[in-house]
Computed example of a mutant assay.
Amino acid sequence: MTSMTEHERTTDPASAETKPAGSLGGALRARVMKDVEIALGLADMAPIGPSTRDVITRLRAHIEASLDDADRFVLTVARTTRRRYIVAETIRHARDLIAAPVDQGDPAARLRLHAKAADHLSQYAQAYRIRRDGL
């Protein structure tokens, strides 16, 4: 089984709750994964209107909430490795994404981009908290 720090990805909110990061970390990850699931489902159904904006707004909040711990996580990855480059670029892309207007571009693409950014950053943040707390 791949650990969270090795980029295990899942869209199953139930499995997100069982990840070892303490009750708060698991609950936060589960909340992110639920919104990711909603966003990806909505993206497949020609999204328009306030529901799309609401989901994107929640995903942006998840991204912002994960940024500090994700930034700390990247510092724990070995320097000069491809993995560190990928993590750093993913964080940079997420920052660029939340700096752009909420309504800019294709709604389905925006949902998918925000969903993936929230997923990755919450994984990085959770991995940092696991290391920090020694779990």
Score class of each variant (00 low, 15 high):
Thr57Phe: 10
Arg58Leu: 10
Leu59Val: 07
Leu59Met: 08
Leu59Gly: 01
Arg60Val: 02
Arg60Asp: 10
Ala61Leu: 08
Ala61Arg: 11
Ala61Val: 05
Ile63Lys: 00
Ile63His: 00
Glu64Gln: 13
Ala65Phe: 06
Ser66Trp: 03
Ser66Cys: 09
Leu67Gly: 02
Leu67Cys: 04
Asp68Met: 09
Asp68Gly: 05
Ala70Tyr: 01
Asp71Lys: 10
Arg72Trp: 08
Phe73Val: 00
Phe73Trp: 15
Val74Asn: 01
Val74Cys: 07
Val74Trp: 00
Val74Pro: 00
Val74Leu: 04
Thr76Asp: 07
Arg79Leu: 13
Thr80Gly: 10
Thr80Asp: 15
Thr80Pro: 00
Thr81Cys: 06
Arg83Asp: 14
Arg84Tyr: 04
Arg84His: 06
Tyr85Asp: 15
Ile86Trp: 09
Val87Thr: 07
Val87Asn: 02
Val87Leu: 01
Ala88His: 06
Ala88Ser: 15
Thr90Glu: 09
Thr90Ile: 01
Thr90Cys: 06
Ile91Gln: 00
Ile91Glu: 00
Arg92Ser: 12
Arg92Val: 05
His93Cys: 08
His93Gly: 13
His93Trp: 14
Ala94Phe: 08
Ala94Arg: 01
Asp96Thr: 11
Asp96Lys: 09
Leu97Thr: 05
Leu97Ala: 03
Ile98Arg: 09
Ile98Gly: 02
Ile98Ala: 03
Ile98Cys: 05
Ile98Val: 15
Ala100Gly: 09
Pro101His: 11
Pro101Gln: 11
Asp103Ser: 14
Asp106Lys: 03
Pro107Leu: 09
Pro107Gly: 04
Ala108Cys: 09
Ala108Pro: 05
Ala108Val: 09
Ala109Trp: 03
Ala109Gln: 13
Ala109His: 11
Ala109Ile: 13
Arg110Leu: 12
Arg110Glu: 03
Arg110Val: 06
Leu111Phe: 08
Ala115Glu: 02
Ala115Lys: 01
Lys116His: 15
Ala117Thr: 04
Ala117Tyr: 02
Ala117Gly: 07
Ala118Glu: 00
Asp119Ile: 01
His120Pro: 00
Leu121Met: 07
